[in-house]
């Protein structure tokens, strides 16, 4: 019977670790710091320059997968992020939103540039070839799929609604989903900006 209790104890400890009940102040959004790998990619930005994750070290980076023809999820999410960034101390200078297109066939560099500029100077459009995009989706475990084109050449695109938050050192910290309230998102974003500015200084 002792054996049984030992196992139960071990299982409960494992449960605690895996469900992420760490000590300290809890986050309002999803803590992914021990789950998701650091920010890493090599893509082309909306000015046609080849960029990598290194170029965004020193900024809090928000990674989002979308496409410019997106009717609802992308504009809503990005507009909400724009408002949050404007309202957060240090948001305008210290945050970059990296919008990776999952539809590079329609989203040329120029189209991406025009699209992200509408949300603010903190927004960067990124595109890559099929292999680069697949590698990035595999790394962050998100799905995307392009549907069959209709008579007018329009097609449905499935993509993730998640916003992955990386601190100034490129470490994964939080995941914002559409279920998080703007207040929760703003508060946690402010904490990451403050946290990592201490860490860097």
């Amino acid at each position: 019977m002792l054996r049984f209790w030992k196992c139960t104890g071990a299982a409960m400890i494992a449960y605690g670790v895996l469900s992420g009940c760490t000590s300290g102040e809890s986050w309002k959004t999803h803590d992914i710091s021990s789950l998701v790998p650091d920010l890493a990619f090599t893509l082309t930005d909306d000015r046609g320059r080849s960029v990598s994750a290194q170029d965004y070290r020193g900024k809090v980076a928000l990674l989002f997968f979308g496409f410019t023809h997106c009717p609802d999820v992308c504009p809503t999410t990005l507009a909400r992020l724009a408002r949050t960034i404007q309202a957060t101390d240090g948001g305008r200078d210290d945050v970059r939103v990296l919008v990776v297109t999952v539809d590079p066939a329609r989203d040329s560099t120029a189209v991406m540039h025009e699209y992200v500029q509408a949300f603010g100077p903190q927004f960067v459009g990124l595109r890559g070839d099929a292999a680069a995009l697949e590698a990035l989706a595999r790394r962050y475990r998100v799905a995307y799929a392009l549907g069959k084109p209709d008579a007018r050449g329009n097609y449905e695109v499935t993509h993730s609604s998640a916003v992955f938050v990386f601190d100034r050192e490129g470490r994964a910290r939080l995941l914002f989903s559409s279920k998080d309230t703007p207040a929760a998102t703003a508060e946690d974003l402010r904490r990451v900006i403050l946290d990592s500015s201490h860490g860097a200084g």
Partner: peptide, 9 residues
């Protein structure tokens, strides 16, 4: 599955 997207809609 909502957050990271489903393959089929």
């Amino acid at each position: 599955y909502n957050v990271c997207a489903r393959v089929w809609d």
